[in-house]
Amino acid sequence: MADPGPLIEPHIPALRRYAFALLRDHDRADDLVQDTLERALSRWLLRRADGDVRAWLFTILRNLHVSTWRRERRHGVGVAIDDITIPAIAARQDTALEVRDVLAVLEQLPEEQKSLLLLVGVEDFSYDDAARILGMPIGTVMSRLSRARQRLRSAVETGKVALLRRVK
């Protein structure tokens, strides 16, 4: 049996980055990565032997994230009102009004759009891999990506307007 350790370990920094971008909380992100790794080890023999380990790990992480989120929402715990308000745009994003904190703005997007932007734009997954990780038809990835970027632009725009108002 091939030792999964050396095949999994190189992907841990990227898994932590994705988890952190989803949760924006260092501890909870590492909890999610830990759950992912535990599941990966217990299911190592069940994965497709010819499959890409990196995409497989990201799929596990994303599925865990979504199911946890659903469970929390069902039980009505975990999210305080303060946490779901639009994150403030830091005042240092001064006169140029160029919003640099895209990560904070990303928070306002639905999970699927957020994940798609992260997998394609940050983790450099191919469009096909990103579609598979997110369980969406491959033919719809490009249009969904276009919509996600449009949504991000308008969220950044809103942030800018909010900032303008505050500056005035």
Binding site: P4, G5, I8, E9, I12, P13, A14, R16, R17, F20, A21, D30, V33, Q34, L37, L41, R100, D101, V102, L103, L106, L117, L118, G121, V122, R149, L152, R153, V156
Partner: peptide, 25 residues
């Protein structure tokens, strides 16, 4: 630009050493 900012903002997370609790061993 948005794509690059997002990547840049997350760069430090990627560069962090992996904490022991996430070591496979």
């Amino acid at each position: 630009r948005h794509r690059a900012s997002l990547r840049g903002q997350l760069e430090h997370k990627f560069a962090e050493p992996v904490p022991p609790r996430l070591w496979i061993a």
